[in-house]
């Protein structure tokens, strides 16, 4: 039981870390040396390799991606908080419904954010042949199934003692 509990918490924290990293790190898109993320476009200029960043555009879709990522972090943190609350208040045999619902919501938010980014990134980044998605984008997609799985585990899980 304790091992299961520990495993769930580790999974939840892993999801949170993935969400934070993918939201913050500037590696959503890589266009020949320039990197772009939800917040800024960075590039290495010249031989002295001075790193320069400018804020990204105010495109509506980009803003909704940002909003979705922030919402998923909020929901996931809230879910972790509620899990600890429910751990001490739930009666024996109860299920962690609320915790699970919020975690699944976080997963859905990440999914919609990443999906919007996939479809709409050409609106604010001119589409060139050497555009590739960076690791932060992949982490966001990895975070989605993990969040949903941990949410489903919360819903299935019954409190033992």
């Amino acid at each position: 039981m304790l091992l299961l509990l520990l495993g769930i918490i580790v999974l939840h924290v892993a999801v949170l870390v993935l969400l934070f990293v993918s939201t913050i790190v500037s590696q959503w898109l890589i266009v020949n040396g320039r990197t772009a993320d939800l917040w800024q476009n960075c590039s290495t200029l010249g031989v002295q390799s001075s790193f320069q960043c400018v804020t990204s555009s105010t495109n509506e879709w980009l803003q909704s991606v940002q909003a979705m990522m922030i919402l998923s972090i909020i929901f996931s943190v809230l879910s972790l908080f509620l899990f600890f609350c429910q751990l001490f208040t739930l009666t024996k045999g109860g299920r962690f419904y609320i915790t699970g619902i919020f975690q699944i919501l976080a997963g859905l938010c990440v999914m919609s954010g990443a999906a919007i980014f996939t479809v709409r990134h050409t609106d604010w980044q001119p589409d060139t042949s050497d555009t590739s998605f960076g690791f932060a984008y992949i982490l966001a997609w990895v975070a989605f199934p993990l969040a949903v799985v941990s949410g489903v585990i919360y819903v299935i899980l019954r409190k033992r003692e």
Binding site: T58, Q63, S64, A67, M68, I70, L71
Partner: peptide
């Protein structure tokens, strides 16, 4: 152009 943060704030 949409002001920065309008859509962001609205969605959140």
């Amino acid at each position: 152009p949409t002001r920065y943060g309008v859509v962001l704030g609205a969605v959140i």
